[in-house]
Design a protein around this nucleic acid. Structure first.
Length: 502
RNA sequence: GGGUCGUUAACUCAGUUGGUAGAGUAUCUGCCUUUUAAGCAGAGAGUCACUGGUUCGAGCCCAGUACGACCCA
């Protein structure tokens, strides 16, 4: 049984001691990993019911609870021991005394290590200092732990270990647990919100023959039986809009996207995106919906629609959001006189003056976007909808009725980052085909992020897609915001890391 | 891709001018019946990330590599 551990010569003295202890237990016919303990109460329930109950009442009640959890601290006095038991909902102090358990059970109990998972039957009392504590009547080892937990006071600090061994991080870092519980709450609230609004959740392909819906480098893979190249999706957009053609008028998907790009505090190669589409709505309707959705999720998850982020208070309350056109933002926030970015040659000069390169034949919209990224985006701390993006960089967006060079599209920014991207959908198949053709030209010119031609998508539009608006929201970034996390890795359970060496 | 910083016991960290590797926690032994970062006494525990170089001598200086963090692109 222990050969698996023995075979690795990484055994340090602590692990050796535990293996020896485990062998002793086996010699005494103690099962190290039984699965017959039935718990009837969780620690959270004890706190909810008895946090304010006084000592006399507790002792008079003489309850009998069956708890199970991990031993996370240990204070022994010889014939009496205190420890903390932790389960998914919290931790509570447990008291075990030789005189209550009997010599035999107590000897067995004394072999417990920090990290072991145990079952306890007992009642509640209060110690001299008034702490709610479980008095042990019966004790059972449920799972032997062979490895020591990190320092009880400092916890696990090494971020690399925290990510590589997230299971340990979750045991010893309360904040980590809180973040991922909040993440689940965020996703749950988004679903509830959209379901209430009449949206239907769907699942569309993660493996696509033509990766579409975003400007990004895809991961490539191969299907053996069909002997075909496949891409991990960079967005679900084109499939969700096919569903609008099919008559599902309000759809959404919360799922993973994959982009073969750099890793940073803001980017993980796989990340979670909410995309939703609503027929007979336009991008302005989505601004209203977004304010409602974000403020509601923030309230449900953090208790307030004003949330702290890295020292700033971000106000997500409905009505507190700024709406500004792309050009106005370059002028008013970026501080650029209009003529410096409206005219192509001048815009090129402005970009170069900022130390940025300009590629051969690069479109005006792209150059403006570069200026925006440098001069405007970092300054958008409070929620801002920036709308009317250049058509050049919006190949799936509907053109503005008055000005075909801009689209009815917005991006949502806050804390200096993009949080969402939305637009009135382009449903004119002729225009769409032309835009794809333009993208193909850019691809051939060397832009490996440009869109592929998707004939079937154009064919779908030819059947007629109702006018609609759609939006993508980066869930990881939303969770970062609502948990005040500086790095995306803090909100992804198992972020991508290079393989461990040694 | 570039720059800066980091990697020492299971965990958190010291380590002086280059001269035999340190602490706290955890572990082990002993004492201890209301502690909670329990306490007291003692003990064990190290491929100083890896490879090479300089040197009589390297955790420390130099070069490279790996992994990570942060900043920039």
């Amino acid at each position: 049984m222990l050969t698996a551990l023995d075979a690795r010569d990484e055994l340090n003295s602590v692990i050796k001691t535990r293996v020896e202890k485990a062998c002793q237990l086996l010699d005494e016919n103690i099962h190290l990993y039984p699965n017959d303990f039935k718990r009837d109460t969780e620690i959270e329930t004890l706190w909810a019911r008895f946090a304010d109950v006084d000592a006399e009442t507790l002792e008079a009640a003489d309850h009998d609870f069956a708890l199970a959890g991990r031993v996370v601290s240990y204070r022994s006095f010889g014939k009496v021991t205190f420890f903390h038991l932790q389960d998914r909902g919290g931790r509570i102090q447990v008291y075990a005394a030789r005189d209550d358990l009997g010599v035999e059970q107590y000897q067995l109990f004394k072999k417990t290590d920090i990290g072991d998972i145990v079952g306890i039957r007992g009642s509640l009392f209060r110690t001299k200092t008034g702490e709610l504590t479980v008095m042990t009547r019966q004790f059972k080892l449920i799972t032997k732990s062979m490895r020591p937990l990190p320092d009880k006071y400092h916890g696990l600090k090494d971020v690399e270990t925290r990510y590589r061994q997230r299971y340990v991080d979750l045991i010893v870092t309360p904040r980590t647990k809180d973040i991922f519980m909040a993440r689940t709450a965020v996703v749950g609230e988004l679903r509830r919100f959209l379901d209430e609004k009449g949206f239907m959740e769907v699942e569309t392909p993660m493996m696509q023959a033509i990766p579409g819906g975003a400007t990004a480098k895809p991961f490539e893979t191969h299907h053996n039986a069909l002997d075909m190249k496949l891409y991990m999706r960079i967005a679900p957009e084109l499939y969700l809009k096919r569903l609008l053609v099919g008559g599902f008028e309000k759809v959404y998907e919360i799922n993973r996207n994959f982009r073969n790009e750099g890793i940073s505090t803001q980017h993980n190669p796989e990340f979670t995106m909410l995309e939703f589409y609503c027929a007979y709505a336009n991008f302005e309707d989505l601004m209203d919906l977004t304010e409602e959705m974000f403020s509601r999720v923030a309230e449900k998850v953090t208790g307030s629609s004003v949330v702290p982020y890295q020292g700033e208070m971000i106000d997500l309350s409905v009505g507190a959001w700024t709406r500004m056109s792309f050009h106005d933002s370059l002028e008013k926030i970026g501080g650029l006189p209009r003529e410096m970015f409206v005219d192509y040659e001048q815009c090129k000069a402005t970009v170069r003056a900022r130390g940025e390169k300009v590629a051969e034949g690069e479109k005006l919209g792209k150059l403006q976007a570069k200026l925006f990224d440098i001069l405007v985006e970092p300054k958008l701390i409070q929620p801002h909808f920036i709308y009317h993006y250049p058509t050049d960089i919006s190949p799936l967006s509907r053109r503005n009725e008055e000005n075909p060079d801009i689209t009815d599209r917005f991006e949502l920014f806050m804390t200096g980052r993009e949080m969402a991207n939305a637009f009135s959908e382009l449903n004119d198949p002729v225009d769409q085909r032309g835009r794809f053709e333009e993208q193909v030209r850019e691809k051939e010119a060397g832009d490996d992020e440009a869109h592929f031609m998707d004939d079937d998508y154009v064919r779908a539009l030819e059947y007629g897609m109702p006018p609609a608006a759609g939006q993508g929201v980066g869930i990881d970034r939303l969770v970062m915001l609502l948990t005040d996390s500086a790095s995306i890795r803090e909100v992804i359970l198992f972020p991508l890391l290079r393989p461990e060496v040694g």
